[in-house]
Design a binder for these strands. Structure first.
Lengths: 365, 365
DNA sequence: CTGTTAGCGCGTTCAA
DNA sequence: TTGAACGCGCTAACAG
C-alpha cells in the first residue's frame, strides 16, 4: 500500500498554507479581528484590555469587528503568555450520585468562584485506579490545586505527590501515610455524642453500620462509638457489627440483625448511605411485626445517624442525627486550598500541612 | 549564539537535587528536562510521545530526568500547538445542592470521561445573571461544548449564541425562542400518566404544586396534568394551584390548602423539591389530625410526584412517582453534545437542532 | 497612539 | 537518530 492521499477529491487548495478565516476552522483569533478592523493584533489586544492608549474611534472599529466575528480571547493562550496559572482547580469525589457530595461540590464551587477560579469535576466511583488516573489528568491540565475525597487507602502516597506536584487538600477522609492539608469533620466526638444519645434512652444492645475499614471515617466513627460505650461501662458484641458499602447491603444487614437471636434495640449508622438502608429495613421490619402481633407491637429500633438524610425525621423511627453541613466542608476545603496557594505564591514553599476539623452537632427527632 | 538564560544564573551545580527553575516558577518544562538530560527539547518531546527514533539509552536518561523533576507535559500548550480543542466541556446546573443535579452531573461526567473529556462545573443558583456570566467564562476557556440547565427565560437567546459560538445542549428545560439541541423528559405524557393514577383512585380535587411559569418544565407538567383532568371531564380550581420555588414554600402551600375550606384529597407535585415539601406538610397534618380525632382519622392525602425522592415510599402517604433517571438524562445530553461536536468536525456545520425526550414511567407505592 | 519584535511551552517539518 | 527553525494565540517590551 502506497501513501496515496485518499481524501484529495474535495480539497481544492493544494498548496495554500492559509486555512484563513475562522469560518473554516475554530474560533476567530486576534489576527482575524485585526484584519477586519484594519489594525495590528496589538491594537486589538490593547482594546480588549481596556483600551489604554488606543484612539476611541479605532476602539470602536475593533469592538465592531469583535462583535461581528464573535471573538473571545483564548484564555489558555493568555495564561501561557503571561505565565499565569490556569484558573482551574480540580475536585475529585467518590460518588456524585450521593447527595452529600453534590452539596459538598457546591461549597467548593462557591468559594472557587469567589476566588475567580473554576472547578473541574471528577468522580472516582470509590475506585482507587480511576482516582489515580483522575489525578494524573488533573496534573496534566495544570490545575492549580486539587481537592480530593480519597476512595480509600489504595492511593499510593508517594504516587500522589509525584504525580501532582500541585497542592492537594483532602476532604472528609484521610489517607494513611499521606501528610497533607485536610478538612475533616470531628468524627470521633460526633460519633461519641450520637452514641450517648442512644445510651441516654437506655439502649445497651446497639448495632453498628459503617463503611469498610479502609475508609478513615469508618474507623474514626467506630472509635467514637466504642469510646462512648466503654465510657458507659458497656462492651460491644462483634456480631452486631456490619461493614457495608451501600444502602442495600446496610438494609440486608439490619434485617438480619433484627431477625437474629439477640436483636439490637438501636443502631448506629456511620454515613448517609447506611442510614437510608437502615431506615428502609427498620420500616419494613415494623410493618411485618405489627401485622404479626396486632395488640402490643414491639418498640421500633432507634437510629443514630451520622449525616442528615432528607425526610428521615418523618418516618416515626426514633432518630438522632450527628449533623454537619457538607457544603461548609467543601467551602472550608477550598479556603484551605487557596490559603496554601497564596502561601506558595508568596514564596514560603513548605509550610506544614494543616488539618481542620468541623464540629458535629447532634439533633434529636 | 549563547544559551544564556537569565533565569539560570548559576550553571555550576550539575548534580543539584533541587529543580532550579521549578522552584522559582511553576512546573518544569521540556527545556528543563532537556538540559538535565543533556539533549535537545525535541528529544524529550519524542521520548514522551513514545520514543520513536530515540536511542534507548538516551530515552533512559530522559525518563530519569522526567522522574527527577516531576515533569508533566503542559496539556494546554500541546493543544495550542496542535490546534486541538481543550478536551473540556462545561456543565451549568441551577443547584448542585439538589440531589437530582448531582446524579445528572454524574451522568454527564461518565460519558465525557468515555470520550476522553473532562467536565468543568458551574452552578447558577437559578440566577440568570450568574448563568450568563458562567457561559461567558466557559466560552473564554475555549470549552468544546456546554450542557446547560437554564435558570429560566432570563437568558437572552441572541446573547447565548454570540457569547458562546460553542455548541450548546439544553437539558431538562428549554428556553423560549432559543432553538437548540435539547434533552428533555416527556413531561406532558408523564404528568398525564401520574395524574391518571390519582384519578383512578377516585380523586377529583387535586392540588397542583409546581415551579414558577418561567420554567418550561413547570408549564409542560401543568399541561399534562390539565389534559388528564379534562380527559376525565374534570375542571381545575385555580385556588388549588401553588407556584413555589423551594420545599419550604411548597410545605406552607400544602398546609394552607389542607386547612382551607375545600381541601384537596390529593396533590400533584411537579418536582422533587415540591415533593419534599408536600410530604413534610402532609405528615405534619396527619399527626395533627390523628391527635384531634382518635377514632376515625380522615384519609391521608395522596401524592403524585414528578421525580423520585429517597425514602418517600416509606412514609405511608399514598404515592405515585413519575420517574426517570437523571443520570440517564445527563448521559443523553452528553451523547447529544458529542454527536454535535463530531458533526461539526466532519464539516456539516449546520445540522438542525435535535430534541430528545426521555420516557417517564409511573410507579405506585 | 500604534506597530514590530520576541517568546510562553509545545510539536511538526525539514535538514543534518 | 538528532537538532534547528517555525508557528499555535496571545501580550510585554520596546521601537516609531
Amino acid at each position: 500500500m502506497t501513501m496515496s492521499r485518499s481524501k484529495a477529491s474535495a480539497t481544492s487548495d493544494p498548496g495554500a498554507p492559509v486555512p484563513r478565516d475562522a469560518a473554516v476552522r475554530g474560533a476567530p483569533t486576534v489576527r482575524d479581528v485585526a484584519a477586519l478592523a484594519g489594525v495590528s493584533p496589538m491594537t486589538v489586544s490593547r482594546t480588549m484590555a481596556g483600551g489604554l492608549n488606543v484612539r476611541p474611534e479605532v476602539q470602536e472599529r475593533v469592538r465592531a469587528a469583535v462583535e461581528k466575528l464573535g471573538y473571545r480571547p483564548n484564555q489558555n493562550a493568555r495564561n501561557t503568555r503571561l505565565r499565569k496559572p490556569t484558573g482551574l482547580i480540580g475536585i475529585a469525589v467518590t460518588n456524585l450520585g450521593n447527595p452529600y457530595y453534590g452539596r459538598f461540590a457546591l461549597g467548593v464551587q462557591g468559594v472557587a468562584s469567589a476566588h475567580g477560579r473554576q472547578v473541574v469535576l471528577g468522580s472516582s466511583g470509590e475506585d482507587p485506579e480511576l482516582e489515580e488516573q483522575l489525578l494524573t489528568e488533573f496534573a496534566g491540565r495544570q490545575l492549580e490545586g486539587v481537592i480530593l475525597v480519597p476512595a480509600g487507602n489504595g492511593l499510593n502516597p508517594e504516587g500522589v505527590r509525584q504525580l501532582a506536584g500541585i497542592p492537594l487538600v483532602l476532604a472528609t477522609r484521610t489517607v494513611d501515610g499521606l501528610e497533607c492539608d485536610a478538612v475533616l469533620v470531628d468524627d470521633v466526638s460526633g460519633a461519641a455524642a450520637g452514641t450517648a444519645a442512644l445510651l441516654a434512652d437506655g439502649h445497651v444492645r446497639i448495632g453498628f453500620l459503617g463503611d469498610v475499614e479502609g475508609i478513615s471515617t469508618a474507623r474514626r466513627r467506630f472509635q467514637g462509638f466504642r469510646m462512648a460505650l466503654e465510657g458507659a461501662g458497656l462492651g460491644f458484641d462483634q456480631g452486631h457489627l456490619a461493614r457495608v458499602r451501600d444502602s442495600e447491603a446496610a438494609a440486608r444487614a439490619v434485617t438480619a440483625l433484627l431477625t437474629g437471636p439477640h436483636p439490637p434495640t438501636a443502631f448506629f449508622s456511620a454515613n448517609n448511605r447506611t442510614t437510608v438502608g437502615a431506615l428502609r429495613a427498620i420500616c419494613e421490619w415494623r410493618a411485618g411485626s405489627v401485622a404479626t402481633d396486632a395488640g402490643t407491637a414491639p418498640p421500633v429500633p432507634a437510629l443514630a445517624s451520622f449525616d442528615d438524610v432528607e425526610l428521615a425525621d418523618l418516618l416515626g423511627v426514633p432518630l438522632s442525627v450527628m449533623s454537619h453541613d457538607p457544603r461548609e466542608l467543601g467551602a472550608a476545603a477550598a479556603e484551605l486550598l487557596f490559603k496554601r496557594l497564596a502561601g506558595e505564591a508568596a514564596g514560603g514553599p513548605h509550610r506544614k500541612p494543616v488539618t481542620v476539623q468541623l464540629p458535629v452537632s447532634v439533633r434529636r427527632f
